[in-house]
């Protein structure tokens, strides 16, 4: 495949979206991207799974197994979270608004 569904996802070379489930998105505050936020991936029971820091453009990325996930962001502009259901391999996008 030459083109990824989301050009901004910036996936590492070798990522195979026919096999891997990737959750990506932006952290935003009143519509503007929030860089430097601590983005936490929590599983269906609310248990912590992974954490990354959002890029200057507010982007984050996780490699996840199928399931229902909560993406929770902590930042100096506030905290927020959103849910994403990963049904199988592919790219899943969810924005997280903090306030």
């Amino acid at each position: 495949m030459c083109s990824a569904p989301d050009q901004n996802a910036d996936l590492p070379a070798g990522t195979d979206l026919s096999k891997e489930s990737v959750v990506v998105g932006k952290v935003t505050s009143r519509g503007s991207p929030v860089g430097g936020a601590y983005v936490r991936l929590l599983d269906g029971t609310g248990e912590f799974t992974a954490e990354v820091v959002s890029s200057a453009s507010g982007d984050y990325r996780f490699f996840a197994a199928p399931g229902t996930w909560t993406v929770r962001a902590l930042s100096r502009s506030g905290n927020g979270q959103s849910e994403v259901a990963v049904g199988g391999p592919g790219l899943f996008t969810t924005e997280v608004a903090v306030a």
Binding site: G14, T15, E20, T49, A50, E51, R61, F62, F63, A64
Partner: peptide
């Protein structure tokens, strides 16, 4: 590997 790293 943890979910924020490639599974290589």
């Amino acid at each position: 590997a943890p979910a924020h790293l490639p599974q290589e």
